[in-house]
Design a protein around this nucleic acid. Structure first.
Lengths: 146, 146
DNA sequence: GTAACCACTTGCATATTGCAAGTAAAAATT
DNA sequence: AATTTTTACTTGCAATATGCAAGTGGTTAC
């Protein structure tokens, strides 16, 4: 179980988003789940930012409690756990991609190619759909072999 | 001066955004500056979330250091300080509004009217421009009377 | 049957936060 | 001119959260 209380800031839309997303580790876990196809505890743990094990467990529990991740035993291997991004989590893709466009503009050392921002600005819906399909593919490849 | 180190996570665009935005108080200060026309220390302090004075001072310093806010003595009253949102801060408006749309969809107790999400989805550029003009008006009304 | 894998939990030192009180400069009031 | 008020902070300290290292308990591979 999670140590700290879950931020439950309803009402104001910015505050509600802040309650769920304005945490460094939650933010990066969602990046890994939505953009990099990560699903298991050890995949999240191996991200280059180096989260520690207790914090990762805490944040996964929080993201599950706020309805962003769906925790399930891996059907292929019962000692493994998968955290699938929910519809609610997928729905932040437009905002997440918009933030990434912002970063490519304002971080002079950004890794993102110029083409990324251009593609998103040209057709944001198509870009979101591309990521959604990637998520579908990853999830199907896990759940399919039930 | 700020106690903690400034997060300086360049490279990955999500991580860069997280380094600046993934903090509850920074997030809410930017909301107040970009959406509610707040500029002074005491205006930010009086937000309903109730930030404490030392944290507010720390976050204002961080947002200044990361180029999000421009600290200036109020030309109308030298005992007062104004924090103006920079171009870099204004540029997160599309992402911020997209997050708010997400909140109106997923927070069942949201304060935002249905029309907000609809207006943003119909014409995001026009919505961003509307907020930009509001910011211009506030800043001009302070700087104009120099 | 044993070793390795995987998802955590626990204990403890350190860092951050929140609260209350205090300070210092400028502005308004008397 | 002296005093009070406004404004933007700073300081000290208790409570909370984080980060690290080590440990635990099922599952799976060999």
């Amino acid at each position: 179980m999670s140590k700290g209380k879950i931020q439950d800031w309803h009402g104001c839309p910015t505050r509600y988003a802040a309650g769920i997303l304005a945490d460094k580790w939650c933010f990066l876990i969602l990046r890994d789940a939505l953009l990099h196809g990560k699903r298991t505890y050890s995949e999240f743990l191996n991200s280059p930012e180096g989260v520690s094990t207790n914090i990762l467990a805490d944040r996964l529990a929080k993201l599950e409690a706020t309805g962003m991740l769906d925790r399930q035993i891996d059907p292929r291997k019962a000692s493994r756990v998968c955290y699938f991004p929910t519809r609610k989590a997928r729905d932040i893709l437009p905002a997440l991609l918009a933030l990434m466009v912002w970063s490519t503009r304002h971080d002079q050392f950004t890794d993102a190619p110029e083409s990324f921002a251009q593609a998103y600005n040209d057709d944001p819906v198509a870009t979101v759909n591309w990521y959604e399909k990637e998520i579908d593919r990853v999830d199907a490849s896990i759940k399919g072999s039930e």
